[in-house]
């Protein structure tokens, strides 16, 4: 099949960026989207042009490294799929594809389609954990966890930290990412002692990073490769309000 690509090229954070058109022929429908870009990059290298920089690693949809907006959809049009797991058969022959990086102030651009998502790491560093010193843990079965809670916690914990939620949000908000972490740990008995300080710290860091506010569009959920629900955002809000009230009370 043939595809026409318009890829955002930007040499560095300060350099001007623009879309560059590439026409690809002989694309196999069995290729993944990133394999298609690999092939293009090989062609660029053969022509002594600079290949397109894009983040990728596991190519199994779990590491969260890859991420690009394809025709206005983070990770492309397929539901619950990262760019590396998206296959060219998803597109019609002759498709025209616009490929852009995640765009958010909190994700400064490094090069082409590569952005710096360190803001998400810093949010976790601010409190996205359960404080447990190695060796101090009680016997694993000492605290039973209802299956429902464990399953729900797992739904939230499935977040791969790719940043698609931020990219998809009309407000560039990171609420779904933060909500997933707060809910994962807040749903488990082990996470209770730090529940209110955790949510306070995570939210403070999120705001400090310059993400926008949630206005409940739900685009994050639609873009999330792990289909994490915005119900967790309500849970985050509830936890945050509770923490604020109980602290002031």
């Amino acid at each position: 099949m043939k595809v026409t690509l318009h890829v955002w090229r930007q040499a560095g954070p300060a350099a001007p960026g623009r879309f560059v058109r590439y026409d690809m022929t002989d694309v196999s429908p069995d290729m993944s989207f990133l394999e298609m870009l690999d092939v293009l990059n090989q062609q660029l290298i053969a022509r002594r042009e600079e290949p397109i920089a894009f983040d990728h690693d596991c190519r199994e949809g779990i590491c969260g490294a890859c991420g690009m907006v394809i025709n206005g959809r983070p990770h492309g049009p397929q539901r619950a799929t990262t760019a590396c797991q998206l296959h060219m058969r998803t597109f019609p022959d002759g498709a025209e594809l616009w490929i852009e990086p995640w765009r958010a102030r909190a994700f400064p651009l490094i090069k082409d389609l590569v952005v710096d998502r360190g803001a998400l790491d810093r949010i976790v560093q601010a409190g996205g954990f359960i404080t447990v010193r190695t060796g101090s843990a009680p016997e694993a079965n000492a605290i039973p966890v209802p299956k429902r809670d464990a399953d729900l916690a797992m739904d939230a914990a499935a977040c791969i930290g790719c940043g698609a939620c931020v990219a998809a949000c009309p407000n560039a908000s990171a609420m779904l990412f933060v909500a997933a972490k707060v809910s994962h740990l807040g749903l488990l008995p082990q996470g209770q002692p730090e529940r209110s300080t955790r949510v306070a710290n995570l939210v403070a860091q999120m705001d400090a990073e310059g993400f926008g506010a949630c206005t409940n569009h739900g685009e994050c959920m639609a873009a999330c490769p792990k289909e994490i629900s915005i119900d967790f955002i309500a849970r985050l809000n509830r936890d945050y309000i509770k923490a604020a009230i109980s602290h002031e009370g």
Binding site: A137, H184, L185
Partner: peptide
């Protein structure tokens, strides 16, 4: 296993 459960591994 003890360590991971305490960390919140679901």
């Amino acid at each position: 296993i003890d360590q991971c459960v305490a960390q919140g591994v679901p």
